[in-house]
Simulated assay, not measured.
Amino acid sequence: QAAEAAASSESELINAIKKGLKERSAALTAELLKTKAALEIIDGELIPALDIVGKGFEKKTVFLPQLLMAAEAASAAFAVIKEGIAASGGASEKKGKIVLATVKGDIHDIGKNIVKAMLENYGYTVIDLGKNVPYQTVIDTVLQNKIKLLGLSALMTTTVANMEETIKLLHQALKDAGEECRIMVGGAVLTADYAEKIGADYYAKDAMESVAIAKEVFGK
């Protein structure tokens, strides 16, 4: 019976996220944390829920307001998980600093926010510059903090050119300063080939991929 209850509460959380129910998602997550590890909930509940909504959005069975509400509900669940990790003293070992930014001209930051939450849950420190970030802000932040990994996001075809420009200017600034920083890029309009073409080191097709990239860059 306990197993049945667990199974029903699992699907309840996925349903709550899909419906964009923030408070319900947070409450169900708090309940699940009593019996499950944080990463188990992220991998088994939050990411599958966001995948379902994301695929629906691609197929046009889910529309932007629903996508935004689901992302907010998932963020509420992530917030509960982060509190749980902090309270239990887990992931207190910081593994490295990563800068994230949605490029100049682009006002979409759902994907970036999910990546941020994932990286933080895996113990990385994230400096989030937000959306529509000017080139110089990215460059200054990377150099001042001696950042070894930068994540850039673009969701609009029109802003990919700004991503390319950000990378070009950063490469020059790093060269002048004698510093090194790896760049990962992501966003619905990008492909691995295009990422390589614009000078990025890595293409992150989703949030989990960005965690794998961080592990590779920092060696832990």
Rank of each mutant, 00 (worst) to 15 (best):
K22F: 00
A30N: 12
G54K: 07
K19R: 12
T141C: 11
V142N: 06
A177E: 12
M156V: 02
K94Q: 10
M163R: 11
I47F: 12
A71M: 01
L67D: 06
N113W: 11
L39Q: 09
K131V: 11
V53Y: 11
I47H: 10
A214S: 08
T191C: 03
G219I: 02
V103C: 07
A6Y: 09
E179C: 05
I147C: 04
P65V: 00
G130E: 05
A86E: 15
N132C: 03
K60R: 13
L155F: 01
A207D: 08
E196T: 15
H108S: 08
T158H: 04
I47P: 02
D43C: 01
E58I: 08
E120H: 05
Q136N: 14
V133Y: 05
A2C: 00
I52M: 10
S210Q: 02
V80M: 13
V138T: 15
M69Q: 08
I42C: 01
L169R: 15
I85A: 01
G56H: 07
L46R: 04
A37S: 03
Y124Q: 04
G186K: 10
Q66D: 14
K148G: 11
V142A: 03
G44Q: 12
I98K: 11
K60W: 03
T141A: 15
V115H: 08
G44M: 10
K131S: 07
A86Q: 14
